[in-house]
Design a protein around this nucleic acid. Structure first.
Length: 422
DNA sequence: TCTGGGGTCCTAGGACCC
DNA sequence: TCTGGGGTCCTAGGACCC
């Protein structure tokens, strides 16, 4: 039988911020999305205050003031670095690990010589806490989906311990009965609503359904999900991070923009960022999409959403080529007279750079461009990602994000490491 | 009068995840 | 005043082919 552990950091972003400010222990913390827009992470104390995931910051301002909630802009450099440290601790416990997201990882425990898996969970948790300082919850079960579910149970119902193990069919059934349909990994809002119409309210109810019914109403994805709930492992392992199939860079602006020339700067910056991400994974893109839109929350404004997709003659990762294509796209979709709040660039049809088919009439000097990009990446890697940029990207970021509560990069920037007075 | 059957490829859109 | 960003996979349906 397969055995899988899912380790998930508790309130990860909030825990990262708290790590460097022990005074925040037992105090409510929230971390805001880009642009300081809405809440994307909450400490337990903040959850207890009733602050909801995704709540717009301005709507909970009173709660924040009243309860002295500590507020942070998101600092992905810091979180990424702490995430790496957590994953490195986990690697000591099993050879096969899949880093599933910034704050969680699956460990394959199948066939390993651990006598007591529950005790193993306890010691993994202790080690991560000792070595990195981040609290985690651990679910251990025969399949990934059940491990997810056990993890959820550990987090909700066994707070002090933080570990839940399900092995035999009795334990699995209990867990299924205890889990609401909408809390299953793979069941989102739409499916949950549909299932409830058919009187399916728990994971146990779902497992009891006819598989043909599942297949018709929830596609093969749903079928796989139900098999996992029955203890048959069928979610693939993705041990090596594979090359992305599409890459997107998009931001809303700190303020509304309306002129095409103003939009050109963020559009080209996003394009440049996509190109850099392509080069980072040694790939080229064969197609590009650009979109712009107005702020859907401003009901008083006329709305405009538009995107355009263009295929590139020869797949490329050259910044200037991708910027040019993106600006051409902007020219196609831009309409004057609207207040825009967001734009983005997406590249796809991605191929490995050594498999690019050259075009018959390609006049672009690819050798020269490659060398230039190498220099660009080296400089920007060393001195910060916007050090060298194209003129169209603009000298100053007039569309810049709001980040008023940014914490220092304690672990990655030598100028911002913590100093301790003794 | 009568108008097949089977296959592939592509795209848009929907569902999900963190 | 102020509402995030970045991914994956699957399906239906149309175009096209023989």
């Amino acid at each position: 039988m397969t055995m899988i552990a899912l380790i998930d950091c508790n309130n990860f972003y909030a825990s990262c911020e708290r790590l460097f400010q022990p005074a925040l222990r037992n105090r409510p913390i929230v971390v805001l999305s880009n642009n300081d827009g809405c809440v994307i992470a909450r400490s337990d104390e903040a959850k207890q205050l009733g602050i909801k995931m995704g709540a717009p910051a301005f709507q909970i301002k009173e709660l924040i003031d009243q309860h002295k909630v500590a507020v942070f802009s998101s600092n992905y450099i810091l979180y990424g670095s702490l995430s790496n440290r957590v994953m490195n601790v986990l690697r000591n416990f099993a050879p096969v690990i899949e880093v599933y997201s910034i704050d969680e990882a699956f460990l394959d425990l199948t066939g390993m010589n651990y006598v007591d898996l529950y005790e193993l969970g306890i010691s993994i948790r202790r080690e991560v806490l000792n070595q990195v300082g981040i609290p985690v919850s651990i679910g251990i079960a025969p399949t990934k989906t059940l491990a997810k579910m056990a993890n959820r149970y550990a987090k909700k119902e066994k707070k002090g311990v933080g570990v839940h193990l399900v092995q035999d069919s009795i334990q699995i059934n209990n867990l299924l009965k205890h889990t609401k349909i909408e809390d299953i990994w793979g069941v989102g809002r739409q499916y949950a609503m549909k299932l409830m119409q058919y009187n399916v309210f728990t994971a146990a109810d779902l497992v009891a359904l006819n598989e043909d019914w599942i297949r018709t109403h929830m596609t093969v994805v749903g079928l796989r999900l139900v098999k996992e709930l029955k203890g048959v492992s069928c979610v693939e392992w993705d041990a090596l991070p594979s090359a992305k199939k599409c890459i997107q860079t998009a931001r809303s602006f700190g303020k509304l923009l309306s002129k095409k020339e103003e939009l050109a700067a963020p559009v080209s910056s996003h394009a440049a960022s996509c190109a850099a991400k392509l080069r980072y994974q040694n790939t080229c893109a064969g197609a590009i999409q650009v979109f712009i839109h107005t702020n859907p929350h401003r009901k008083q404004d006329p709305q405009y959403f538009r995107s355009v997709t263009m295929s590139l003659e020869v797949p490329t990762s050259d910044s200037s080529e991708i910027i040019n294509a993106a600006l051409r796209g902007l020219g196609i979709i831009y309409k004057p007279g609207y207040l825009y709040n967001k734009t983005g660039v997406l590249v796809f049809d991605i191929v490995p750079e050594d498999q690019v088919q050259l075009g018959l009439f390609d006049s672009f000097d690819r050798g020269r461009s490659g060398k230039m990009m190498q220099v660009l990446d080296e400089v920007n890697g060393k001195f910060g990602k916007d050090t060298l940029r194209y003129a169209v990207q603009g000298y100053k970021k007039h569309w810049k994000l709001k980040q008023q509560k940014l914490s220092p990069c304690y672990t990655t920037n030598i100028l911002e490491v913590l100093t301790i007075k003794i």
